[in-house]
């Protein structure tokens, strides 16, 4: 294997300074559940790893406005088990538990989970071309194996999907990503961290060299207490989503939709916030017909490839069923 140096960061400022100086040969290391695999496969070949998993970003703190601040080094297991998250953002806890395996969730961090790379089989095989891995080398997935790749927002250069479950829930919640970088601290609202592939699929996010995710902030979002995450996958556990949905629904007393939050996983290069569907739903009666109308509004621009057209009806059914279940729960409660 390729030799590399390992450095355990003492503080965020030092880590950022080192990475900014050493980029692109240096990379941050969180839980390592994705990066170390990519290093074994030869997909990633950092010469210097800066371990940020021990930085004091390991707490989940309530905020004055009723929101929640989650340190970037908090493990996926700890976040899924957090009582506040489970009570007030159930779709986030459910999304976390739908991902990977118990062992991986114990290691994986919140920051690292957001920055996971696609599992497209061409990306992970260095003996084949891939524009994301080697810009300009081509995209064999477009005509090759793409059953589980994108139907929304893909480009000639790349049809990859983002693999995270957690990110789908965070995008639905409209979380804020806290970033510190060479230019200081800033926040990036979700969606907004991940980018569509366009002509530069090698860039998964808008982060610049040296940027370090330090926390994710959940806004106080009362309707998130009535939310769920549902993941469709080939294998009943330990498999990436074929399609997933994070959804929250709030009804008015007359049974019409006051507000909703909807995001899809497995459909795009980014965790896909379904803003068109949310917009369509507002004020409509909470019926399956309305939910189907909303799904169609969102999926009207889907561009399925040869072998993944099934994701369009799948996403539609998933949206209709999930919102219908949320509506039924609220009907029962009222």
């Amino acid at each position: 294997m390729k030799p590399f140096e390992y450095e355990r960061a003492a503080d965020a400022a030092g880590a950022i300074a080192t990475l900014t100086r050493e980029a692109p040969r240096a990379m941050y290391l969180g839980g390592g559940t994705n990066l170390v695999d990519l290093m074994k496969l030869g997909v990633a070949a950092p010469e210097l790893l800066i371990d940020v998993s021990h930085l004091p970003h390991d707490r989940i703190e309530p905020l004055a406005d009723g929101g929640l601040r989650i340190g970037a080094a908090v493990s996926n297991s700890a976040l899924a088990a957090d009582r506040t998250v489970r009570a007030r953002y159930p779709m986030l806890a459910q999304a976390l538990l739908a991902g990977a395996s118990g062992q991986l969730r114990n290691l994986a961090t919140v920051g690292g989970n957001l920055l996971q790379r696609t599992r497209c089989s061409y990306f992970t095989d260095v003996s084949k071309p891939c524009n994301k891995r080697e810009p300009g080398s081509g995209c064999p997935a477009r005509d090759g194996d793409h059953r589980n790749l994108a139907i929304l927002g893909h480009s000639e250069a790349c049809v990859a999907t983002h693999p995270s479950d957690m990110a789908v829930a965070l995008v639905a919640i409209g979380s804020l990503v806290h970033v510190e970088g060479p230019g200081g601290a800033r926040t990036i609202p979700l969606p907004g961290l991940h980018r569509l592939p366009g002509a530069a699929p090698q860039r998964d996010t808008v982060l610049e060299p040296g940027d370090l995710i330090t926390a994710v902030e959940l806004p106080p979002l009362p309707l998130a207490a009535r939310s769920r995450y549902r993941k469709v996958r080939d294998r009943a556990s330990y498999a990436f989503a074929v399609t997933s949905i994070a959804a929250a629904l709030e009804l008015d007393d007359d049974g019409t939709v006051r507000d909703s939050r909807i995001a899809f996983g497995g459909l795009s290069h980014v965790p896909w916030r379904a803003l068109a569907a949310e917009e369509e739903l507002r004020g409509l009666p909470a019926t399956e017909a309305s939910f189907a109308r909303a799904a169609d509004a969102e999926l009207a621009h889907a561009q399925p490839l040869r072998d993944n057209g099934f994701k369009v009806p799948l996403a539609r059914n998933l949206l209709v069923r999930t919102l219908a279940e949320l509506a039924a729960e609220q009907g029962a409660r009222a």
Partner: peptide, 12 residues
Amino acid sequence: LNHDLAGYHIAA
């Protein structure tokens, strides 16, 4: 091409 246990699904 699905030459590993992430790509080749065996029942869990």
